[in-house]
Design a binder for these strands. Structure first.
Lengths: 344, 344
DNA sequence: TATTAGCACTTAACCATTGAGAGTGCTAAA
DNA sequence: TTTAGCACTCTCAATGGTTAAGTGCTAATA
C-alpha cells in the first residue's frame, strides 16, 4: 500500500471527522470551508480521488461527496491513538462518577448498570461481559438443602461474582451430607478456574464411575451441574439511544441490530476474543469478519481488579461513531470501574 | 350503549378477525366474500356504519375499509372468552413443553427463558415479572463474610427465588457474629413477606436507635439493605420478533416501543396491577391508560405454585394481535410453568 | 510542475400532476 | 328490509421536470 503524505492524511482525517459530526457525504467544497488548509476545492478533489483509489473513501453515488470506508475509519482511529488523548470532557467524567459510585451490589447488577451508564453517556449501545469460565476462579462453594430433593448451590469467586443455582438431585440428601460434600469440593477446587474444575470433574467421573452412589460422585455431579450453565453473562442496553441516530433510520438496519443484540452469541464471541488484549481496543465494521457487525463498530476495554480481569465493558455503535469520545468514555469507565471494584 | 344484535356481532367479529389476519382495513365487499353471511356488500356497509357510530370501528380515511377500535377488540376478545377455548394447536404445546422442560435452574433464569419461549411461540414480546415484595415471603437468610468489610447475603424464599447481594458494612464483622445475626434474622423474619419485614425494620430501627452499634442494629441494617433493592425483576424479550410485524413498519412506533421496553417502570406497574386477579387477562391499547401502551396490548396470566403466586408472565404485542392464539399460549404456558415449579 | 478556475455531466431529492383502484354513502328499485 | 347502481373521496404509485450538490476533466496560471 502506498504511504500517505502529510496533506492527504489531513484531508482524510478531516473527511472522517466531518462525517462523524454530520452524517452527510462530505464534498470538496465543504472541506475547504471547514478546514482551511489553503487549498482550493479542485485540489481537495484530486486528493480525495486518490484516497478513494487507495480504499480510504467511497462515494455513495457519482455525484455525492465522499464517505469513509472501514479502512478510512481505521486510519483515523489509529492516528487518534497516536496523538494520544487530546479529548477530555469533565462533564462526562462527573456524570460517570456520580452514576457508578451509587452502585454497590453484586458484580452482575453492577455490570448491568454500567452498560446503561455507558449507553447514556455515549448515546450508543453499552455492553459488558462478565468473566469467561477460563478466567474465573472459584473461591468457595456452599450447598443448601432446598425442598425435597433440591439443592441450592452458591458459588463465590475471587472476582466478586456470586452465582446461585437450583439443582434437582434424583434422591434426597441430608444437609449434613451436603456440608461434607461442600467441604470436599472446597478443598479440591478452591482457587481453580471453572474450566480447570470442569476438566478435573470429567476425569474424576470416569474414574469414579464404578462406585456410582458414593458421596464423591454426588459431589462431582452437583459441581458439574452448577458450573455447566455458566458461560459469562452479556449485558447490553441502550437500544433506544441508537435508534435516534440517523444511521439507523432504515428499518432493515434496525432489524439487523436487534437480531445481533438478541443473538448475543456473536457479540460474546467477539468480546471474548478482544478480552485477550489489554487496554482500549477498537474494532471497526468488517474487521470483526462477522456479517452481523458489518456496519457496527466496537470500542472495548477489560476491567481488572488488581491483576485479575473481572469483565470487559464497551460501546457498540455505527461505524460512523465518535471514536474519540467513545474511546475516552470506555477508557475512563474501565479505569473507574476497576478502581471501584478493587476498593469494593 | 346500544346492544348489538346477532348479525352485527358477527360482522364485527369478522372485521376484527380479518384485520388480525391481514393488516389492511377491511371493506364491505371483502367481508361478503370471506364470510358468506348471505348478505350483500351494501347491507354490510350499513351495518359497518352503525358499528362505527357505536365506536367499535373506525376508518383511517374516507374511502378505506374499517379498522377495529380498542373497543372493537375488547368486544371480540370478550366474545372469544365467552365461547371458551376453541383454539388449540398441538404443535405449539409440544414446542412449549420441549423448551420449558429443558430448563432447570433458578427462578430468575427460568422466567427469563420463559419470556424467550413466549416470544418465539407468539412472535410478540414475551414478558415475565417475578413476585413483588408484598407477595414474596422470606424462607431463610444466610450471611457470609466476603473480603474485608463486605458481607454476602443470600435470601431463600418460599417462591423458589434466590437472591444474593453484596453489602459493604462500615466496619469488619466476624463470621461468628454474622452467624448470630443470621439466626436472629431467621427467627424474626422467616415466613414474612418482604414488605412486612421492611415495615418491621423501620419500626425496630427507630426503637433501636439509642444502642447504635448493637448486633441487632447491625442485623437490621444488613437486612434492610438486602431487601431494599428488591422490587421484582422484569424480563422482556423478542424485540426482533415484533419488528417483523407490519404494525411496526414505522420508525416512530419502534422508538416508542423500545423506550417502553427500556423504561420497564410502566410495564412493571401494569403487570403489578394485573397480578391481583387470577387467570388470563387481556388489556387492550388505551385501556391501560398509559400513553406508552396506547398502541399495544397485553395478554398475561399469573403463575402459581400451589396457592402462592410466583410471578406473572405474558405477551405484549400490537393491538392488532392474534388474541386467540396469544390467550392460548399464555394460558398454557402459565399452567405448564406452574406445574413445573410445583414439581421442581 | 503543482494548483486552480471553469464547465459539462451525473445523480438524488423534491415537487406537482395524473390516473388507477378501492371503498364509501346515498338513492331508488326490488 | 335488502340490494343494485352510481357519484364521490381518498390513497397510492408512477411520471416527469426542476433544483442543488458534487464530481471529473481540461485548460489556464503561478
Amino acid at each position: 500500500m502506498q504511504v500517505l503524505d502529510e496533506r492527504s492524511k489531513k484531508v482524510l482525517c478531516a473527511v472522517v471527522q466531518s462525517y462523524i459530526n454530520f452524517p452527510d457525504p462530505v464534498g470538496s467544497r465543504f472541506v475547504t470551508k471547514r478546514y482551511p488548509f489553503g487549498l482550493s476545492p479542485a485540489t481537495i478533489r484530486n486528493i480525495m480521488a486518490d484516497l478513494e483509489e487507495m480504499g480510504f473513501l467511497t462515494q455513495p453515488h457519482t455525484s455525492a461527496g465522499r464517505v469513509p470506508t472501514d479502512m478510512g475509519y481505521r486510519f483515523y482511529v489509529d492516528s487518534l491513538v497516536a496523538e494520544s488523548e487530546h479529548y477530555s470532557n469533565f462533564e462526562i467524567l462527573q456524570e460517570l462518577y456520580k452514576r457508578i459510585e451509587a452502585l454497590k451490589s453484586d458484580i452482575d447488577t453492577f455490570l448491568g448498570e454500567t452498560t446503561t451508564t455507558l449507553s447514556k453517556l455515549s448515546h450508543y449501545l453499552g455492553v459488558a461481559l462478565s468473566p469467561r469460565p477460563n478466567m474465573i476462579t472459584l473461591k468457595r462453594i456452599e450447598l443448601f438443602k432446598y425442598k425435597a430433593d433440591k439443592v441450592v448451590t452458591i458459588l463465590f469467586t475471587d472476582e466478586g461474582l456470586i452465582k446461585n443455582k437450583v439443582i434437582s438431585l434424583g434422591s434426597e440428601v441430608s444437609q449434613k451430607d451436603l456440608n461434607r460434600i461442600a467441604s470436599y469440593l472446597n478443598s479440591e477446587f478452591s482457587g481453580h478456574t471453572f474450566d480447570e474444575i470442569r476438566l478435573r470433574i470429567v476425569k474424576e467421573m470416569s474414574k469414579e464411575k464404578i462406585r456410582c452412589e458414593s458421596l464423591i460422585s454426588k459431589a462431582m455431579r452437583i459441581c458439574r451441574e452448577t458450573l455447566s450453565f455458566y458461560h459469562g453473562d452479556l449485558f447490553i442496553s441502550g437500544l433506544s439511544e441508537v435508534l435516534d441516530l440517523p444511521d439507523f433510520a432504515d428499518l432493515k438496519k434496525i432489524r439487523e441490530l436487534s437480531k445481533a443484540i438478541e443473538d448475543k452469541h456473536t457479540i460474546i464471541k467477539l468480546l471474548d476474543k478482544l478480552s485477550e488484549r489489554d487496554g482500549v481496543q477498537v474494532l471497526i465494521g468488517s474487521e470483526s469478519s462477522m456479517d452481523e457487525m458489518k456496519k457496527l463498530s466496537m470500542v472495548v476495554s477489560t476491567c481488572r481488579e488488581d491483576d485479575r480481569p473481572i469483565g470487559i465493558i464497551g460501546i457498540i455503535g455505527p461505524t460512523r461513531m465518535n471514536y474519540e469520545k467513545a474511546i475516552y468514555i470506555v477508557n475512563n469507565t474501565a479505569k473507574f470501574v476497576s478502581k471501584m471494584l478493587t476498593g469494593m
